[in-house]
Computed example of a mutant assay.
Amino acid sequence: MKTFFTRTASALVFVAVMLGGILWSPFTFFLLFFLISIFALQEFYKLMRLIDGDYASIPNWHRWGVAIAGGAVMLAFTGNHFSLGAVSTGFIGWWIAIIFLLVLPLGEILLEKDFAPKNLGYSCMGLLYAVIPFSLLTDIRLNAIDIHYTATGVGTAPGWLIPLLLIVFIWINDTMAYIVGSLIGRTPFFPSISPKKTIEGTVGGMILAVAAAGVYGYYFGQEILALQHWLVLAGIAAIFGTIGDLLESRLKRMAGVKDSGRIMPGHGGFLDRFDSLLLAAPFAWMYVHSFMMG
């Protein structure tokens, strides 16, 4: 019972913080996902150190350099929307990111006696996996003024809409997959990675997530988004969100841990909470820029 109340309380706090950060302002959106990306990045590197002990031996300047580069990349995607004096934060972010991404490999080669190229690979993988997706969500949030959202291509969507819909669709997919899997699940999906997932639950969750988006979009949402956008975004969240969940589960199995972290009582770490979004976000960004931007 104590565990139930702990999980419930932390979930309520999590939802409140997420909604507040996403809806309040562009800056709170950026700040929310900036912090999430930094914590997720550190959890990813912890997993890498458990998977490959050689990565645990990287010097402190490498650890700090990658963290600063990750923050700089997030900052770079803000473009001209925020500024420090007369200089945009996007400009500052790009310069810091470029400098640190150049210094890191040079420092490894020149300063380290036992230079291991794979360690640089792990660091770059972390930036791609845990920072770029949130940077792309920030780009969608700050540039939503150009999104043509209705069937006739008139008007613009609020900046927070697409990121929030992705999160909602992922939640619907996960919930429906659990319910369907519990009721009729028989065939293991990826038993070597996630023994509890079934094909029936996975497919059922995807179908119901897209169906829910379609029903809501058709009857209530076409003034906000054209119906095809509801369906495609739900499909992206369901398909790539599921793959993202499996990917993080695979990393945890390789590292020999149950959770990526312990930041959230009863819910694991940041990677555990956002693993689906990490893979869904880049594909949603590609769809938005290809079919929803003017």
Rank of each mutant, 00 (worst) to 15 (best):
L101Q: 06
I162V: 15
V257I: 14
G70L: 12
T152F: 12
A151T: 13
A157W: 06
L246S: 01
R49Y: 02
D146W: 07
Y122F: 12
T8I: 05
K258D: 12
P195Y: 03
E108G: 10
L137P: 05
L23E: 02
I239Y: 02
Y219M: 08
F4M: 15
G181T: 05
F77A: 04
K113Y: 06
A69R: 01
D174V: 14
L127F: 08
L127C: 12
G185A: 04
I22D: 00
D272L: 13
I22R: 04
Q228I: 11
K2G: 12
P265M: 08
K252A: 09
R253L: 11
L111W: 07
V13D: 04
R250P: 05
G181F: 02
F270H: 03
L127H: 10
F115S: 13
A211P: 10
V15Q: 01
F274T: 06
A237V: 06
F44S: 07
M206S: 09
I68N: 04
A144F: 03
F14L: 15
S135G: 13
F283G: 00
E200C: 14
H267G: 11
D245F: 03
S260E: 08
A238D: 08
F220K: 07
L183H: 02
V13A: 13
H148G: 11
S290T: 13
M48F: 03
L227W: 07
G266Q: 06
A151G: 15
V66I: 14
A284C: 12
G266K: 05
I179D: 00
I98H: 00
Y218K: 07
M1T: 11
W61E: 12
A157T: 15
V66S: 06
P59V: 11
P188I: 03
A56L: 00
K2T: 13
R186Y: 11
Y129A: 09
F27V: 14
I36E: 03
L23F: 06
F91C: 08
I236K: 03
L47P: 01
K258A: 09
I38N: 02
V15Y: 01
G214L: 12
F134M: 08
I92R: 02
M293L: 12
I236G: 06
A157H: 07
I38A: 06
V154F: 10
G261S: 03
G93L: 09
A157P: 08
V103W: 05
A144W: 01
R262M: 13
G153V: 15
A86M: 07
S182D: 11
E112F: 00
C124K: 02
N119G: 10
V180T: 13
L136V: 08
I207T: 06
I96Y: 05
I36R: 01
V215A: 15
Y219G: 05
W285N: 05
L208S: 04
W95T: 12
V87G: 02
S83R: 12
M125G: 06
F100W: 13
I109T: 00
Q222I: 15
T6L: 12
G294W: 09
S123G: 08
N119P: 05
I22N: 01
F134G: 10
M254W: 07
